[in-house]
Amino acid sequence: MSVIYILLTISIIVAIGFFIAFILAVKSGQFDDSYTPSVRMLFEDELVKEKPKSTNKTTKTN
Rank of each mutant, 00 (worst) to 15 (best):
S2P: 00
S2C: 02
S2K: 04
S2G: 05
S2M: 03
I4F: 09
I4H: 04
I6N: 03
I6M: 04
L7M: 09
L8N: 12
T9Q: 04
T9I: 12
I10N: 02
I10K: 05
I10F: 03
S11L: 12
S11A: 15
S11N: 12
S11K: 00
I12F: 09
I12P: 00
I12Q: 06
I13G: 03
I13N: 02
I13V: 14
I13K: 01
I13Y: 01
V14W: 06
V14S: 06
V14T: 14
A15F: 15
I16S: 08
I16Q: 03
I16A: 13
G17H: 03
G17L: 05
G17V: 01
G17T: 06
F18M: 10
A21K: 07
A21V: 01
F22H: 08
F22I: 06
F22T: 10
I23W: 08
I23K: 00
I23M: 11
L24M: 08
L24K: 13
L24Q: 13
L24P: 00
V26Y: 11
V26Q: 06
V26H: 07
K27G: 01
K27V: 05
S28E: 15
G29F: 03
G29P: 00
G29Y: 02
Q30L: 12
Q30C: 00
F31I: 12
F31T: 08
F31L: 13
D32R: 13
D32T: 14
D32S: 12
D32Q: 11
D32A: 10
D33L: 03
D33S: 10
S34Y: 11
S34G: 03
S34H: 12
Y35S: 06
Y35W: 10
Y35R: 01
Y35T: 05
T36D: 00
T36S: 15
P37N: 07
P37V: 01
P37R: 04
S38G: 02
S38V: 08
S38Y: 11
V39T: 07
V39R: 02
R40H: 03
R40V: 01
M41G: 14
M41P: 05
M41K: 00
L42R: 14
F43T: 11
F43E: 03
F43I: 13
F43V: 08
D45A: 02
E46C: 07
E46S: 14
E46M: 13
E46T: 15
L47I: 13
L47N: 07
L47Q: 12
V48C: 01
V48G: 02
K49N: 05
K49L: 07
E50Y: 04
E50M: 06
E50Q: 08
K51G: 00
P52L: 03
P52K: 06
P52N: 06
S54K: 15
S54V: 09
S54F: 05
T55R: 13
T55C: 04
T55E: 07
N56A: 04
N56K: 15
N56D: 01
N56P: 01
K57C: 03
K57Q: 09
K57E: 04
K57M: 08
T58W: 07
T58F: 08
T58V: 15
T58D: 07
T58N: 08
T59G: 02
T59S: 12
T59V: 12
T59P: 01
K60F: 13
K60G: 10
K60S: 14
T61Y: 04
T61G: 04
T61N: 09
T61L: 11
T61C: 03
N62A: 13
N62W: 09
N62V: 11
N62M: 07
N62K: 15
N62H: 10
